[in-house]
Computed example of a mutant assay.
Amino acid sequence: MRLLLIRHGQTPSNLKHLLDTAAPGPALTPLGEEQAAALPEALADERIEALYASTLLRTRLTAAPLAARTGLEIVVRDGLRELSAGDLEMRGDREAVETYLTTALAWSDGDTGRRVPGGENGVEALARFDSVVAEAAATGAETVAMVSHGAVIRTWTAARAENVDTAFAAAHGLGNTGVVLLSGAPDSGWRVLHWEGRPVGPEEGGPREGGPAGESVGDAAG
């Protein structure tokens, strides 16, 4: 299965570099709407057969143009929502963002019992995302698009893909409507083919910004 993990379009909280993870969350900015509108053309070569989004408003708005172009229903699943910021919700200071991101990336490195203060731990977060991926795989669709969130996409990918590790995820951000393309299956494993359109390899370059959940650990908001 080809799995396209798509980060949502820009939101007002992204502009302020805030950890905004609670439901229903903000809508898109005008730029975010433009980014969402550009997705169907950007993904025109992909024969998407199933389209998923998280329960947060921004992902459903981002998925809407794809749904209109493909004629697919948006399947909304809570398992694709952003990693809960817990007690750090709506903070944008460096300490909060670094705590959030380093905790999430520790899960990718196997420390899944670690918990975001007042939020979830890695066992809970990875399991809920796994369940949606398994559901999509069970449909038999050859190409599935999931509109989700920066931190959970990076964390899950580093935890589950054989060729992307925690160091890569820490150094490489994911911009708004950035896409991580994987190939594989829940039972046989996953491999990242492209990260924001670039083949994954040792020559890969620096991070992309776009709010705390999408930026590298070193670029956390201050």
Rank of each mutant, 00 (worst) to 15 (best):
A134T: 14
H172E: 14
E162P: 06
R7V: 01
M90P: 06
T155S: 02
T55A: 14
P26T: 08
P12L: 05
T177V: 04
V133M: 04
P117V: 08
D187Q: 15
L126E: 10
L126C: 04
S108I: 01
I74L: 03
R58C: 06
A167K: 13
T99M: 11
D87M: 09
L72I: 01
L193P: 04
R128T: 08
H194N: 09
W107I: 00
M146I: 02
Y100V: 00
A63L: 11
G189Y: 03
Q35E: 03
G25V: 02
A50R: 08
A185S: 15
P65Q: 05
A127Q: 08
A96L: 07
T21H: 05
L4S: 02
R69L: 09
H172Y: 11
W190L: 04
L193A: 13
H8K: 00
R198E: 04
A161C: 12
S108V: 02
D87R: 10
G201H: 08
D93F: 09
A67P: 13
A125S: 13
A85G: 10
L15W: 00
T11G: 02
R198T: 14
T143V: 11
R191L: 07
G214D: 01
V192F: 04
E162N: 10
L28P: 12
E73M: 03
S148Q: 01
A137K: 09
V217L: 11
E135D: 05
V164G: 08
E120A: 08
A67G: 09
A23Q: 11
G222C: 11
S216E: 08
A42G: 00
G222S: 15
G118E: 07
A169K: 10
R154N: 00
E215L: 14
L5E: 11
V133G: 04
L193H: 12
P12N: 09
L61N: 12
L72M: 02
T102K: 00
E41C: 12
A213Y: 07
V132Q: 04
E33P: 01
